[in-house]
Design a binder for these strands. Structure first.
Lengths: 213, 213
DNA sequence: CATGCTTAGATAGTGCCACTCTCCAAGGAG
DNA sequence: CTCCTTGGAGAGTGGCACTATCTAAGCATG
């Protein structure tokens, strides 16, 4: 398959594919002559993954490269590869220190972890970027006067815990070589699914309550 | 309160506050002299909201202006104001037409709506941006060969439905003038909460299963 | 009341990002 | 043989969120 056909079948312009090649998001094709290269199905698949991460998952190009390189890092076990890839994803800014709202947020999040029995040693401790994002968001809500303590967080946490069990069941069904990619793809690409479903559910519920008021 | 003090108390640089004033995200202060203006507590509150939407909620500046203007649009009822604000938020690109994966995604999402008994007339129909985002994301997952039909979507939808009931209970407790702002702030600022909790839950679950494999 | 710091407001500039354009030399097709 | 296409590389583009600079006008202090 030539560049032009890869572009055709993926719906990505040749200029953009060349850009991804330069950025190292795609392996170069097998060079046939000085001015021609051959691409295979695996290039198409990788390109679709890259596009989905960037366009649907809103992952920046440079981050996508890091995520992809974690997928193939044979020196790590599967859990660590997933962890490295997820840590590379974009996160909210780190919590502001010396701030009473942040103080309060940290406290509530710590209580939440205790109640859920989540284990810091598996990579979800206070130093992980997701933990930081959570504290930042809770602090922002607190500063604005919206309630956001353990009691409010618990239902969210219980819901996502349940969902993640189902999701990892699905991941576990993939063979070893595909498992890490599946975990990362599902993590990233189910995010817009979850958010859009939430917005739709809220719109529906808001209509039930506040239409014509 | 002078600009300098507003900056001090909000942690936002004076240059950035001036930028937000220019962009119409903040009302100008009460002009005291030709070179001085006075800001009040409501400016501080609004600034904190703007900052939270932009930094924590990742809402672009120009979008933030649209969202804020919907909050104060007295010609609409509460449900519509919330709807307009949420529609202004960033969404994934519209689904690609003439694509089998999109076709399939549309079909599955339609089945989902049927099962949930969500009502298109309340603003969550196929023409809403969130609906488009959902279809785009499901299509991307489908193209990559990950299962994403009604059966997979239902648990997510049921979970967010439940959460949105709790959330709207909270919103309903606010007085009329604050209700729309509360709804929008909670919609946007709970998104990072939900996503970071999900990533933490998945990390925890992945550790239980795949550590040292 | 002179001197120097601060302020509001406007204009232009910066750095980053995700492409996109232009060009070139080498192939291949009719 | 001629013309079109290809892969590769560098420069250019447009958008975004600030940030820096400048100016004229106050205020504050000795």
């Amino acid at each position: 398959m030539k560049l032009a056909e890869l572009s055709e079948r993926s719906g990505v312009s040749t200029a953009t594919i060349k850009y991804y090649l330069r950025e190292g998001l795609l392996q170069p094709g097998r060079r046939v002559t000085a001015t021609q290269a051959e691409y295979g199905e695996e290039h198409l698949r990788r390109l679709r993954l890259v596009r989905a991460l960037i366009q649907v998952g809103r992952v920046p190009v440079s981050t996508t490269r890091e995520v992809l390189s974690a997928l193939g890092d044979d020196s790590l076990d599967q859990h660590s590869r997933i962890g490295v890839a997820v840590e590379a994803l974009p996160h909210a800014p780190l919590p502001a220190e010396d701030d009473p709202a942040t103080e309060h947020a940290r406290h509530e999040v710590a209580k939440l972890f205790e109640r859920l029995d989540w284990d810091d040693s598996r990579g979800s401790g206070p130093s992980s970027p997701s933990y930081g994002t959570l504290v930042t968001a809770v602090a922002a809500l607190t500063r604005l006067g919206y309630p956001c303590g353990v009691e409010e967080l618990l239902p969210y946490a219980r819901a996502v815990s349940q969902l993640s069990v189902t999701e990892l069941d699905l991941v576990a069904r993939f063979p070893d070589e595909e498992r890490v990619e599946a975990a990362v793809a599902l993590t990233v690409l189910y995010e817009p699914v979850l958010l859009s479903l939430r917005r739709l559910a809220e719109t529906d519920e808001s209509g039930r309550r506040f239409m014509n008021t």
